[in-house]
Each structure stands twice: as structure tokens, then as C-alpha cells.
Amino acid sequence: MNVLMPSPRLVRAALPALSLAALLVAIWFVQPRAISYFGFNLMLNLAMPIAFATIAQLCVITVNDLDLSIGAFVSFVACVGATWLNATPLLGVAVLLGAVVVYALVGALIHLRNLPSIVVTLGMSFFWLGCSVLLLPSPGGSAPAWLAALVKVRTPLVPFAILVSAALALVVHVGLMRSAWGAILRGAGGNPVAVARAGWSLLRTKVTMFALAGFFGVLSGLSLVGLTTSADANIAIRYTLLSIAGVILGGGEFVGGRVSPVGAVLGAMTLTLAGSLLSFLRISPDWQIGAQGAILIVVLALRALVNRLERRR
């Protein structure tokens, strides 16, 4: 290998940004006018809730679990946001706090009984869906005015959604990748036995990460209901798969606590923009999920290639 070739590690880290850039170039090529403040505002409208949901999923994946209930949970939060939070704000806030506690308890249960997270969170997805159906049997409700105003704020130069996503990526990056606490939390996914031997409580790390997932899930649901102003029980069901795809797209390794918050947010944006590109290309929205799957596969294939080159070296 020659010296000009960047290190595989760098290439891997740059992949999420490169795939987003490739997508942007493609959009610019097809529809140059979309690359503007107004265009980004429209296209990335829904990037905010998806980015929050992706970070929630990232927290769970960090400790070697998988959350298949995040979509149902975000829907539930949106339903609470469109009903109780508007009518009786105190009750609404209490319910959302309670929901975060439930998330933490699920983490504790998974750890204490050593349960498969897939099954437990699938069960929880039924639980949240049931709660949403009880709360909002048919689509409707209305988001609090302050919430709608907050998420639709028009910031100068750069659209609000991009600012929030960047801030989110930065905060989680510093917290998880650059702090001592973050190292322990990731270590609990990388080598649980070592972390436990070093005297840290694995129960506490798992509860922390699940509680954080619940917290970001709440932010996702609130930003979503602020944008849509009404909710229904199935509003965010696709977020479950989308969030997993976002984390993996962003360079998350799925086992061993190897995650990348910045990559995950970029991944969420890539998946959001994929839909816009399709509509610019006048391809039926039927293929939107398929395009997201194809992007995922292409990026994973590139990563596999980089890994293979690295091994050959």
C-alpha cells in the first residue's frame, strides 16, 4: 500500500460523512435549487426526530442491546404531547418522566434476569402501542403551541434542524466518546467482565443507557409532534428500523460498544434525505424504504471493503 492511501481507520470514520456528501451532490445535480436554506428546511424537516431516535437507539446498542420498541415509544410520546401535555401540562410532564423511568426499569430487568433485549423490547413495543391506542384511539390531538413554535423556529443562515442535529451530535460525542463516564459506559458494551472487575456496576451502566435512550426518545416524540401538530398511535413505528439503520450507517459496530454519535446523526440525515432524492428523481415513494435499505447495504459493503484492505496490509 502506498503512503498516499489514508488509513483504513480514517476511511471508516469518514464513510458516514462521505455518503451524506455523495447524496447531497446527487440532489444538487438533479435539483440545484434544493441546496438552499429553504430547500434544506423542507428536506430536513423530519431529520430532527429521526436523529433523536437514532441517538436513543445508539445508547442501547452501546451496551450490546437492541431496542425494538423505540418506534412505538416515540409514537407514545407524540400521543402524550398531543393530548395531556397540551391539556394538563403537569400531568403530561409527569407521564413523560414516568416513561423514562419505565425505560430504565426495562434496562434493569434485562440486566438482572439476563434476558434477550430483542424479545423484551418487542414486548415493550406492544405495551407502548397499547398505551398510545388508549390515549388516542383515532389520529388527532394537538401539540402545545409553544412546542410547535419551538421546532419551527427560523434560525438565521442555517436551518434549525441542522443546528439541533449538530448540537446533539456534539453533546453526545463529548459525553460518550470524550468523558471518563462515557468510556465506562462504552466499556460495559466492549468488555463487561473487565468493567465489572474494575469495580463498576454493570447494572448502573445499563440502567443509565436505557434511561438516556428513554430521554432521547422523549425528545424525538416531542419534536415530531411539534412538527406534525397532531399524533396517532402508529406515527413513528418506522423509527425502530430507521434508527437501527442510522446507527449502523453511522459506523456503529453493533457489538462491543463501538459506536459513533456523530456518524449516527449523519446516518439519520442520510436516510432522511434519501426520500427527497427519490422524489426529485420522480421515483415512486413506494421505493423509499428500499432506497434506505440499498444505501445501508452499499455503505456496509464499502466498510467491508475497507476492513478487507486493512487486513491485507
Binding site: N64, D65, L109, R113, N114, L115, P116, S117, I118, V119, V120, L122, G123, M124, S125, F126, F127, W128, L129, G130, C131, S132, V133, L134, L135, P137, V255
Partner: peptide, 27 residues
């Protein structure tokens, strides 16, 4: 429908919590 979904989810979790968790491993 709402209560039915909630109970279905909780019962599945309860069954797994009572029966599972013998062997370590990721699922």
C-alpha cells in the same frame, strides 16, 4: 384494543423473565 396490546406485551415479558435468563448471551 389498547388494554389487550398492553397485556399481551407485559405477559410476553413476564413469561420470558420467568423462564429465560439461564445462559449468558446476546439476543
Amino acid at each position: 384494543a389498547g388494554v389487550r396490546l398492553i397485556l399481551t406485551g407485559l405477559i410476553i415479558i413476564a413469561v420470558i423473565a420467568l423462564s429465560g435468563g439461564r445462559r449468558p448471551g446476546r439476543g
